[in-house]
């Protein structure tokens, strides 16, 4: 009898643990989605409770996953400031976002790349921030300027010695971020370091560092190394290279002269609804730009 009781308890404990485990497993695996869902849910609840008073308007924002990430934070802040409009954010990629904005299925499209000419017709582009990636080398490296093509060849392992780009006779040590990192994704996208299956073509022997700090440390300690970090993280321990003669400075990135960079753009029709315009105004305002500045270069400072 007692034994049975014990096994019952054990089974119960096990059961709850496994159940608990399942929910715990679900949440991080779909962190972005559930975060979205959470926001959406919060909105729903709020709009339900305030429906009688004001009634929130739905504003759908669709596109680049890169932009969707700060957009979640922006939406949160927007709500905190007392706005009841229901912001629906979906990260589905830049191209899909641009298309959704053009055909009107979304109020606002998000893009982390420049629009192609055929995409520009009939839409308004609003740049909300810039993302610039600096290519960095050891401070003792004599090279201070590379072309975009040279950088691509170095990271693909086609150029393996510094003397091939006018430096000393030393094998290049390529340093890269781990797979899945946003900086790596942007770098690969801008330099076209992806094959037709979207597989990274960065040389396999590249040293991998987890996080910007590890990249900075690796480049700072290895004389023949080359790596890349977001412009905002540069400091004296590494030397940023000019690309095609342009230094990775905020002004050059904003002006589009520094080419390893990308704008984060919102795309709208010219006759957008006032609630959507309010969202864009908020993002371009002080509060919104402060949030963008956490990871990117704000358009206004």
């Amino acid at each position: 009898m007692k034994k049975r009781l014990l096994s019952c308890i054990t089974a119960l404990v096990l059961g709850t643990m496994i159940l608990g485990g399942c929910t715990a497993k679900d949440s991080p695996s779909s962190a972005v989605q559930s975060g979205e869902a959470q926001v959406a849910e919060d909105k729903k609840e709020e709009s339900k409770s305030e429906e009688t008073k004001k009634g929130g308007v739905k504003v759908s924002i669709v596109g680049s996953t890169t932009v969707a990430e700060p957009m979640e934070k922006l939406a949160e802040k927007y709500k905190e400031l007392g706005n009841t409009d229901n912001l629906e954010i979906q990260g589905v990629g830049s191209s899909a976002g641009i298309k959704a904005a053009i055909d009107g299925s979304a109020d606002i499209g998000m893009s982390s790349r420049e629009l192609k000419d055929e995409e520009k017709e009939g839409v308004v582009e609003t740049v909300i921030a810039y993302d610039g990636i600096a290519v960095v080398v050891h401070p003792s490296n004599g090279i201070s300027d590379l072309t975009k093509a040279q950088v691509k060849d170095i990271f693909e392992g086609k150029i393996t010695n510094w003397k091939e780009v006018g430096g000393i006779d030393k094998d290049i040590v390529v340093v890269t971020r781990e797979a899945g990192s946003g900086t790596r994704g942007a770098f690969e996208e801008i330099l076209k370091l992806l094959d037709e299956n979207k597989a990274s073509t960065i040389v396999e022997t590249a040293v991998v560092g987890e996080g910007t700090g590890a990249i900075m440390a690796a480049v700072a300690s290895k004389e023949a190394s080359i790596g890349y970090v977001s412009e905002g993280y540069l400091n004296d321990t590494v030397k940023p290279l000019s690309i095609d003669g342009v230094k990775p400075e905020v002004e050059a990135i904003k002006a589009g002269q520094y080419t390893i960079s990308r704008p984060l753009i919102l795309i709208t029709k010219s006759d957008l609804k006032p609630e959507a315009q309010a969202v864009i105004d908020f993002i371009l305002g002080d509060e919104g730009q402060k949030i963008m500045a956490e990871k990117y270069i704000p358009v206004k400072n």
Binding site: S29, G180, S181
Partner: peptide, 11 residues
Amino acid sequence: ALEMGYASGVA
């Protein structure tokens, strides 16, 4: 450890 931070889906 390296890739758990950002990995999603199949990865």
